[in-house]
Design a protein around this nucleic acid. Structure first.
Lengths: 394, 394
DNA sequence: ATTGGCAGTCGGTAGACTTGACTGCCAGAC
DNA sequence: GTCTGGCAGTCAAGTCTACCGACTGCCAAT
């Protein structure tokens, strides 16, 4: 339903077909004022701006209410926008937002100065985005499914426990404890590690299903354990990279304490947050208003999402979560700015300090291409899995 | 267990010296009722329970107010406890709390079923603790300063960028990007890694200051870079292991939205949270009420802290953050239960699955001893650095 | 020392009333 | 036809009053 409207824009129909010019102007005025003041907007307030009398505005407002764009909290109160009203505003009326000079500088300064590991950068970026907008922000890092394995290591921690450490080309490190079942000398671990190394290096972690046997029974036993462990990965790993910034802003964004409680509760569930962002992005929406995303507890929220793309494919997202009467233009501008910054930064990672050398220079084009398609597949299958609980992971 | 209580009692002074028996009873009744109802408590409400008339209670209440244990929101209202009142309650009046059967089972079930990496366990434990108490919970994992290094590795990511990966005996993996400055072949990296490995393995990461040179200039250049990177560690790393659970509970814990906003804002700053817990633990307090901890924005909060000890030294903590009128006995019981569970679990880590083998069996006693002293030193120096204000309470 | 009684204080609630900001409708002007 | 001004009606919110109820503090009696 919501996609429908979004699609319409592409069909070449003028935006004013659904709503004549004056209605659109009035709707825009109502939404703008309501976003600013959080108070119902009366006909007199916008009579001047619209260039017509309040009576005319009233008539138009009544029509808009009839069409579902506006509503009244009670008779004899002004109008407030419905979700549909916000939707129309975002799709057709909102002028591209511009951040203030100070804010833009804050962003560029952030990305100039930021350094260190990706996780830390993403975390701080979520804080930045929250600061910029005064709403809660969510940053999801790109998954590592498509990154090449650079190193595989098995480190013995205890006689029968080892740690599998995988280093990926993007600088990520995945670790997993492996219960070996019986005491295993380091030599065997080293042998197994060498076998793993030769099989995994240069490939994406997700493309490897079976581990080839070596012939050495004790070594193969270890490899089997490793395979078990790797098979169990997936699910949880996707949610390792969620960073929520500035949830405290939400305390002031809603008047009902219960709403605050509910929304914060949702934000605590990283899994839900990630799926929410993915769904919104997956529908080609960058804004989900009210119930458009289908999460009941967030019915009074709007979500603005911008993709983070690295090397052409989308691997992550930044999102802004606020009340439906959020400042959409500003939020969209902020989300875009930050997501662009992150994308750029990630393309330059992993480099410490300032001078970012494009990693393309170091990686074969073909490799990047393969990554791209792979990531696409992974992403869309994720979507499918999420929605219908379709096939178990193969 | 509140050390303060024990200390006071240890002095041989009866707890009733500060407050006679009846005042104590009345104070206890007021605190208990206020914790339950959040409403000011009048003299009649507790006249029956105290076995005296309301007039007598009033007189005693007036005395308690004069001594600073109670206060009135306004004339003609009942009394509510002051921070001092809560403090006396916690130290002398609170009966050791007992969690309900269901809750105890929830905890034991959690620790029976929990598996996987330490971080995940701690994170979920914070959620558990929040669920148990309906307040916000904080879990800080033990630092890795004292853990033996098991493996050091340098993985080339790009020609002039490598990733330093250090695996510790407790299963933790630290990674750090190293800007090599110039293109460096893998052979050199391997050589440097071997040198690092031989120097670091078996020692705690924190005990190593200078890295010995090898004689090979290109290798030493890499080592110098690594040393730089290691020198910059510290500070930030301590805050990697903070897990905040159930902050949404705070939305309902305070009536003023501004307070909620402020407290949530504090919780977002991991650094502050960690220092808060450390200070509270460092003072020998397990409960900090109101302004006792010195963080103004948390003046309307109380913090319950229990240490997480592994192999005898304290390496982490669990905390509960709630309003000053929190249920202290229950919170103390829950914090203790969960911290014990974590301690036990950590002693058994890193083991996947259920059967936890005490790691003592695998590690030399001497090593554990060295760890202990080392950790002590690190911990206390931390305290000194942070607090700066000797022992205010004691 | 304790108690019951009594006066005083003050927040909270309920009701009546007013105010103000709306809307909807309609008749008249353009 | 469309737009406008005017008018009546509606309703939330604010004000004022009165009153109730839950307190406390004080005091005299036990």
């Amino acid at each position: 339903m919501s996609d429908t409207k979004h699609r319409r824009q592409g069909l070449g129909e003028p935006a004013e077909r659904d709503l004549d010019q004056r209605k659109a102007t009035i709707l825009q005025a109502v939404v703008s004022r309501y976003i600013g003041t959080a108070q119902p907007v009366g006909s007199q307030q916008i009579a001047g701006a619209a260039g017509v009398s309040s009576a005319t505005v009233r008539a138009e407002m009544a029509a808009l209410e009839g069409d579902g764009y506006l509503t009244q909290p009670h008779t004899s109160a002004g109008r407030i926008p419905t979700d549909k009203g916000y939707r129309f505003f975002v799709d057709h009326l909102a002028r591209p937002g511009v951040l203030g000079q100070a804010q833009r500088q804050q962003v560029s300064q952030f990305f100039d100065q930021v350094h260190g590991e990706m996780e830390e950068m993403l975390e701080r970026a979520s804080g930045l985005l929250a600061d910029l907008t005064s709403y809660a922000a969510v940053v999801v890092g790109p998954g590592h499914e498509s990154a090449e394995v650079r190193s595989v290591q098995l480190v013995g921690l205890e006689p029968r426990v080892a740690l599998l450490v995988v280093v990926l080309a993007d600088g990520a490190v995945e670790k997993r404890t492996v219960d070996l079942g019986e005491d295993t000398p380091d030599a065997v671990l080293d042998g197994a590690a060498a076998a793993l190394q030769s099989q995994f290096c240069g490939h994406a972690l997700s493309t490897l299903a079976p581990i080839a046997q070596t012939g050495d029974p004790s070594c193969d036993r270890v490899l089997a354990r490793v395979e078990d462990v790797l098979a169990r990965r997936g699910e949880d790993d996707q949610y390792d990279h969620v960073f929520v910034g500035g949830p405290s802003h939400l305390a002031l964004a809603f008047d009902a304490v219960e709403t605050v409680r509910g929304v914060l509760g949702i934000l605590e569930q990283e899994m839900v947050v990630v799926n929410l962002l993915r769904e919104v992005l997956g529908r080609g929406l960058s804004v989900a208003i009210g119930t458009e995303h289908g999460y009941e507890p967030l019915a009074s929220c709007a979500v603005v999402v911008a993709p983070v793309s690295v090397e052409g494919y989308e691997g992550g997202a930044v999102g802004i979560l606020g009340p439906t009467r959020m400042n959409y233009p500003e939020a969209l501008a902020a989300a875009t700015l930050v997501s662009d910054g992150i994308s750029e930064r990630l393309a330059g990672l992993p480099v410490v300090g300032g001078s970012a050398s494009r990693s393309d220079l170091h990686r074969p084009r073909s490799g990047a291409g393969a990554k791209g398609t792979n990531a696409q597949a992974t992403t869309s299958s994720r979507m499918r899995v999420k929605g219908g609980r379709g096939r178990a992971r193969g």
